[in-house]
Design a protein around this nucleic acid. Structure first.
Lengths: 197, 197
DNA sequence: CTGCGAAAGTGCAACCGCTACACTTTTGAA
DNA sequence: TTCAAAAGTGTAGCGGTTGCACTTTCGCAG
């Protein structure tokens, strides 16, 4: 959670609002990790954070959203990966971006259990995937602009969609880096490149 | 357990069960098409089909499932498209299969409104997509077997996933056949084939 | 044919996520 | 100081979904 402007520069009102939001998010994350997503009700989260259920839903649009707090920077990072790719092809730039991101997350040890929770809970896995694929439009637009194609070019949309889906395909594999090589290699050079079938 | 016996060969019990199931499905489809998915409650569907809500949920696992009745043949059709491809590459065989299927559906005029309903209702669109991507495993296995790769080969899994996702990318476009050419061309020959970027 | 157990269906109550509503409290600013 | 907007509250309710205890229906073995 990054807040560009310092918290102290906000009025008391915004500060309190942020504070409430944070305590809700904290309570939810803690309870979910302790006992699982489905075993905790919104009522209990609200009670733990010492707010009403109504207030909880004024800050978060759904129960699932309580766990996915940071989103915006992912999209800009994706677009940046395409823009500042320095000679590499777009698929390779995206491959590097994913590998890099996975490495970065590996630092945080708590990220492991967090990810386990999301992957083991169907509601969360679907919600996460939905949020993730929301970036398709922006990514496609960035790709299109980069190669000078119309903003709604089909191939750009397809590449964006495939790259985003690639993450899930790769995450299931034991050796993620090698999986990333193969999957993005497929996007870069195609199925028929080293496959006679 | 094989149930390829004709309906008439089933006992009165199974026949009645099938009958109630059908009347529920019919009532749901009719009401949904008439007034929209969200404007019809399960209670009303149950009443229309003259069953209790409990019975309704004994036949269908969710409200969305009421609209998606037949699934099994889609999967076998996908696998068959890969198997009987007669010299064509796998991506091209899948492309042809999709184009063919779209043409086949265009016959049924009621399919247009049905599709509109699904596409305009977020709950249904997501459910449909979830059901559709369930075929990834079977499709990936078929591809792997076809080229003599291990059943869990990453590239096969990726191709399967991408092909399934391709449907949605293509369906948004006005000229679906041309879109299918471009998207599956990307899978077949890769991004770098006719793209220097 | 009979009777028994399994399966299908019923009605009710409740849970859970979520929302509308009417209300009070807090706070920034004129 | 005053006032309107914003934050928060409690209650009541909706809609999908499930558990439970119950009745009815049917298939089948004795």
């Amino acid at each position: 959670m990054r807040y560009d402007r310092a918290v102290s520069e906000l009025g008391r009102r915004e500060r309190k609002k942020l504070q409430t939001r944070q305590s809700i998010s904290d309570a939810a994350t803690r309870l979910f990790l302790e006992r699982g997503f489905d075993a905790v009700g919104v009522k209990e989260i609200a009670d733990t954070a010492d707010v009403s259920v109504t207030t909880l839903f004024k800050h978060f649009p759904s129960k699932e959203a309580l766990l996915f707090d940071e989103d915006e920077q992912q999209e800009s990072a994706l677009v940046a990966a395409v823009r500042n790719r320095e000679g590499r092809s777009i698929p390779m730039a995206l491959r590097d971006h994913f590998v890099q991101a996975a490495k970065g997350h590996a630092d945080h040890p708590q990220f492991e259990v967090f990810q386990r929770l999301v992957l083991d809970t169907s509601a969360l896995r679907e919600y996460g995937h939905r949020m993730w694929t929301r970036h398709q439009g922006a990514l496609a637009a960035a790709i299109a602009e980069e190669i000078g194609a119309p903003a709604d070019d089909v191939r750009c949309a397809a590449l964006a969609r495939f790259a985003l889906e690639a993450r899930d395909v790769i995450f299931d594999r034991p050796d993620r880096e090698r999986a990333a090589d193969e999957v993005f290699g497929l996007l870069e050079h195609g199925w028929s490149a080293d496959q006679q079938a």
